[in-house]
Design a protein around this nucleic acid. Sequence first.
DNA 1: TTAATAATCGTTAATTTGACGTTTAATTTA
DNA 2: TAAATTAAACGTCAAATTAACGATTATTAA
Lengths: 242, 242
Amino acid sequence: MTNDPLNMITYSDQVRVLVAVDCIIFGFDGDQLQILLIKRGFQPAKDQWSLMGGFVGKKETLDGAAERILFELTGLKDVYLEQLSAYGNPERDPIERTVSVAYFALIDINTYKTQISDRYHAEWFLINEAPSLIFDHNNMVEEAQKRIRYKAALHPILFELMPTKFTIPQLQNLYEQVYNAKIDNRNFIRKVNSTDLLIKLTEKDKSSSKRGAFYYTLDKTKYKAKFQSFLNFIPNPENLIS
Amino acid sequence: MTNDPLNMITYSDQVRVLVAVDCIIFGFDGDQLQILLIKRGFQPAKDQWSLMGGFVGKKETLDGAAERILFELTGLKDVYLEQLSAYGNPERDPIERTVSVAYFALIDINTYKTQISDRYHAEWFLINEAPSLIFDHNNMVEEAQKRIRYKAALHPILFELMPTKFTIPQLQNLYEQVYNAKIDNRNFIRKVNSTDLLIKLTEKDKSSSKRGAFYYTLDKTKYKAKFQSFLNFIPNPENLIS
DNA sequence: TTAATAATCGTTAATTTGACGTTTAATTTA
DNA sequence: TAAATTAAACGTCAAATTAACGATTATTAA
């Protein structure tokens, strides 16, 4: 058995490629689901719209790079961030082969403060009004939406988007945007209440109705405990119709 | 607005890293759930057990690399293969930084033919009897198992592991291994029948009982049509107890 | 004071789930 | 040859969930 010292072994004849992280950042302002995009002030594809991204640093993990990129654009840490998929089509970046690991983030837009940069200009778009993006970024956004639709049907992932206090009609509105479908409000309330994840406040939001809707906050302990369970918010997404 | 020609733009000062694909290959022989591992006849970690993997080629997609690696080890194409996750800890490979994109495959062991190689030696292991693996491969296997448990609860993914004809008790046995739990056979039969995915054959398998159990085959058309639906084979995995 | 309306509570039938009882087909044993 | 055995298959039932609605209520605006 050969027993070469570690420093003698090398991976010769193999291609090294760039590895990037791109972030699909969804936000909710209490009314509309939006996506945060940048207009690039740098090459390649200068002046075009794209996801926020960046190369993975020498000593950085993938998750670490995603957190850094998200923080750079939003000033936010400790928000929901999940790896979506790795994209490795050799032609996806025309400048040089780059494998991109996409992450998606869910943030409460109220906590977002525009970060000034001379390298790009960031803007929130309604999902349906977003401009076309460079490379395979449109595809990434679509797959992120699919993932969110899938996961939100089972787990309280959309609660991550809500402001600290919110009403159930607001939450329902978000679900309706995500699924592009009308949801029965009576069944929705019953489902949400049955999960026992929300704490009812005494205050009401009277901005959207005469009667007003009670504010709720997330019970973070129960949220964490029950997140992995099948809570079946949308038991059968196929049945939903626009 | 600058308008540099494409060939003038470069990504300078960025790190290029190796990109590999590792495959977690699960198989079922009609009786036991197993995992296919290799004993490495090459450096690094020569003579140790690992997942089958390889570097992504110059003009290869990630999916393409995964298919190639799976084919090299099993001689199989067109089997269930899904991207699990990208792993990018800078220290995960002690020789040189390598980002690995892990895929998991589900195969019917009866279709597997040992592929001769002088670079490694492949062997099937019962999940619980598998040796410890190099790098972060143990973690990959664990995460693949989690993914399969999650997905099998909702979708008929485990059917991918079954032989062309199989009995419902065999299928139940596979579920019991995946969840490491006893499942009520009466409820299981009812659930499987309600999905209408199986075609009952006239022949019986008498190897495991006096009465014999009817063979079934997968209705591939219905399988494809219903795969994405929530079929709820295991409506509440948390309730299962070993 | 009344009309209007979103928010909330309630009802009902159909379906699904979880737990468990019973019958059956075929082999093995007496 | 009859009886015992046993996994497979079929059946039952209460509780929970779902889907589709109806009815009430709190508040504001007319």
